[in-house]
Design a protein around this nucleic acid. Sequence first.
DNA 1: CTGAAAGCGCTAACAC
DNA 2: GTGTTAGCGCTTTCAG
Lengths: 355, 355
Amino acid sequence: MTLDRRSTLADVARLAGVSLGSASRALSVPNEVKPATLAKVQQAVAQLGYVRNGAAQALASRRTRTVAAIYPTLSNPIFSVSIHKLQQTLWKYGYQLLVASHEYEPQREIDLLRAIVERGVDAIVLVGTDHSHEVYELARQYGLPYVLTWSFDDSTYPHCVGFSYYDAAYEMAKVVVESGHTRIALCNGFEVSNERARARVAGTRAALKAAGISLRRDWVTEQPFNFEGGREAVRRFMGSEDCPTVLICGTDLQAIGAIDECRIRGIRVPEDLSITGFDDIEHAAIVVPPLTTVHVPTEKIGILAAQRIVELIEGREMPAFSPLETTVVIRKSLLSIQKTSSLGRSKRASLSASG
Amino acid sequence: MTLDRRSTLADVARLAGVSLGSASRALSVPNEVKPATLAKVQQAVAQLGYVRNGAAQALASRRTRTVAAIYPTLSNPIFSVSIHKLQQTLWKYGYQLLVASHEYEPQREIDLLRAIVERGVDAIVLVGTDHSHEVYELARQYGLPYVLTWSFDDSTYPHCVGFSYYDAAYEMAKVVVESGHTRIALCNGFEVSNERARARVAGTRAALKAAGISLRRDWVTEQPFNFEGGREAVRRFMGSEDCPTVLICGTDLQAIGAIDECRIRGIRVPEDLSITGFDDIEHAAIVVPPLTTVHVPTEKIGILAAQRIVELIEGREMPAFSPLETTVVIRKSLLSIQKTSSLGRSKRASLSASG
DNA sequence: CTGAAAGCGCTAACAC
DNA sequence: GTGTTAGCGCTTTCAG
């Protein structure tokens, strides 16, 4: 029953008294064999505790039934939650997930992809639309289908499962402006190789511009997408007399770090400084004060990306994807202040804006 | 240069003017071929953009150069951080990581493992020591080396890379007792199939007992290891007049949920209820009030597990692992209260304990 | 619907 | 050191 040598399909076929080919078919296309044959094979499989050899199967069929996902990081819960959904959905369709993270290093993404291609996967899931030329080249060269996730922008690739960071940032900034703020600072991520970071500034800038406000160059900073990034932004902007009344952050992680830095330095949030986030991670509702942020379709991205990649692998045509929705979630970290005159913060009008 | 058909080692060998065998050796054992041969092969590889076929390699060599890790969940940052380290370290040694999560479902762990075995991996990393019989059986049957992580207990398997949850919980509870608490409640995880949860209660109970306190049955609850679990514990214990002065949680996630639930219900932490955590995730230092918790060697576990699994795969003998250390981190969420008489909370002594 | 047979691309003896 | 060759375990034609 438990043999020393791992038993093979040939063993199964022999025991079942059928040919190798029939045994193979019984396992992969059960409805193309006679019920009797199927039964004999299944019986033999059970008896031997037979388990397919994936490598042999992959070699012969040129399909590995695994897809790889290369993410920026696993440290942002927004990604780990999405990956979990991706994995679960893929699993349902009979695929495994190989996950790797490049920690925002373009070169590491290339290296990972190369290793993954070498290992053999049926498709890949990437985050964002801005990748090195080598990445696309590798995918093309090996005929690997891929879906791009999170970002949905004006790039022409039809398999982008995501939302518009530009629109999301625009909406967030609009809410900020409508809350009466004019002194607005932005804690963004690094814009190089990251269209999401670029879209966030662009969207923010556009919304401010529409309100007649211009985003001061010295009130924009590029910081890592983690607690420390947000802290640093606070240190940078809140030192002098001339400081913003709101800090728009690129991720909730940054925003939470910023809130904590404010607490440490005795800056009251939102009375002295409003802070907004992006992502709406579970913690966002729990920090003190709760975070005004952009809710994004984290789980949906995982699920839809999985479905799409399976369709692609199995050669079914898919219509181009339409962007998902995001919504601004208003909580306490954004203060609604009296409207100021457009030329500074001196005059106070009697109206107060609502979000 | 970029062929239609993915080029094979045979193509490389032909182009380099060497035999298939030499080409293979040039790639896998470069120092066993003449430098001139090596150079020719490398040149051909570059020219063709050759990439190994992992399936063929795996089939012929019986090694996949990938290891699988089955984790309870990716939603706890403690695990995602550790997985990241595991992955990075494995990568350095030339191995890939296949990650899956069973969400605390024993049956799902078995299913995942079966799929993973079928797919083919060189080894597996599991969390904890308490697994279904089938899990060990599968590993044994296919001769798969494995390391057990996080937990280090009295099970006899020599490759457990972890720490003693019992000792850690004991220390935490000791600190709680020394802070003057006697009315102590425990928010634990589900104990079935989870020796870590069991060790936590056992350690806590032992520490209380050593102080002459017994853990009330109705002040112990099994909850999921997430925010909601902590919230529920607060709801359950803080309804009546007869309530604890401290809630010891099994994870920081539970503790953070508990703190938030207290905030919602107007229970002051730590004045009305002290709360302690376990794990020391990054958020622990940031919540308000900052969390007293057990710091655990998250990254070390990832790194050491990776190293050990590689040694095991490559057949090197390893001495049995010695447990890692944990430390209690004292922050504001645990109130140091005046010593009460052993028979209630009526009398106040003038001493106050320190942690 | 089934059996026979030809590979999939690589590694690992084995002889030279 | 290097070339030759026999598989690794499976899928997939192709006849029948």
